[in-house]
């Protein structure tokens, strides 16, 4: 086993991990504001890539214009999803919420398949594809884009949640929804916000990863599930814990695929997911909380 080999796998693992982290934070934001695990989260990742393609190829926009348009379009989709599927639900039991978000995810996937077909599509990298050498390993410029954008989003997120009124209100909802409502926070609005933010983040993740992995109508399932896995490792935190969870997952997966077997790559995430749920459901870094009855 070579050092540079391990370095290579770790580096590429970091950038996929960053994607998982972004998706995972999206999961956590909705979960904290609403108590819902949004099974459709991965579809917004897919929409990000597909909308970029739409603006790029069909509407012939340049890349710098196509990307913001795609983010806006996916965010509108997230907004509509909350308005049309989540809010009208009268019996919002966990099982009903699971079923409705699964239903939504299939519906979105199906519509994407009808609109764009079943083919995989490529999106050009943001700034060329000349590999960059680092200590015996090589990475692509797109990897750097992914890491940089992730860092920026994590910082913006932090500022939003800790230094703006609406972000603080959202955190209040996360701690105690009823109390937040009592002090005059519009909880419905916060729920809507949480869907907007997380669909925007999901779509950004989908856009920045698309040049590396290509995109298709069905990429959302796996990416979504792995994002969830990152969130579970991070104890459903919408902050740094989930980011670390995502990076950890990305690196482990990449090392596992490279050193053990590429066929079982996807299984690694789910085995970690099950182990964490069984042994430390509060996440790798979280404190155990006493169960309330």
């Amino acid at each position: 086993m070579q050092f540079d080999q391990i370095l290579q796998y770790s580096l590429s693992g970091l950038s996929t991990g960053a994607i998982y982290a972004l998706i995972g934070v999206g999961f956590s934001i909705i979960f904290n504001a609403t108590g819902i695990i949004n099974f459709a989260q991965g579809e917004f990742v897919m929409l990000g890539g597909m909308f970029t393609l739409l603006f790029l190829e069909t509407l012939k926009l340049p890349l710098w214009a196509a990307i913001p348009c795609a983010i806006v379009a996916s965010t509108v989709a997230g907004l509509l999803f909350e308005r049309l599927a989540i809010r009208p639900l009268r019996q919002a039991t966990p099982i009903n919420l699971v079923i409705i978000t699964i239903g939504g995810s299939i519906l979105i996937r199906g519509l994407a398949m009808l609109s764009w077909g079943k083919d995989t599509h490529a999106i050009p990298p943001f700034s060329g594809d000349d590999p960059i050498a680092i200590a015996g390993a090589t990475i692509l410029p797109q990897h750097l884009w992914i890491l940089a954008i992730t860092v920026i989003i994590v910082i913006v997120n932090r500022i939003y949640f800790y230094h703006t009124i609406s972000g603080k209100a959202m955190r209040a909802c996360a701690y105690n929804r009823r109390a937040a409502g009592l002090v005059g926070i519009d909880v419905h609005r916060m729920v809507l916000f949480s869907f907007i933010i997380s669909s925007a983040m999901g779509s950004i993740a989908g856009i920045i990863v698309a040049p590396l992995t290509m995109t298709a109508y069905d990429v959302g399932i796996m990416l979504g599930l792995k994002g969830f896995c990152a969130a579970i490792i991070g104890g459903m935190s919408s902050g740094i814990a989930t980011v670390i969870g995502g990076l950890l997952l990305g690196v482990l997966e990449s090392l596992g695929a490279g050193l053990i077997s590429s066929g079982y790559k996807d299984a690694i995430a789910f085995i970690i997911l099950l182990l964490i749920l069984f042994i430390r459901p509060q996440g790798l870094f979280g404190k155990a909380e006493s169960e309330r009855v």
Partner: peptide, 24 residues
């Protein structure tokens, strides 16, 4: 272990189990 989980977590864990089996 799996049925100690509730609601969304149970859904995700069973989903993960199904996918592992599928990969195998």
């Amino acid at each position: 272990p799996i049925l100690k989980l509730k609601g969304h977590y149970l859904a995700m864990a069973t989903l993960g189990l199904g996918i592992i089996v599928f990969i195998v």
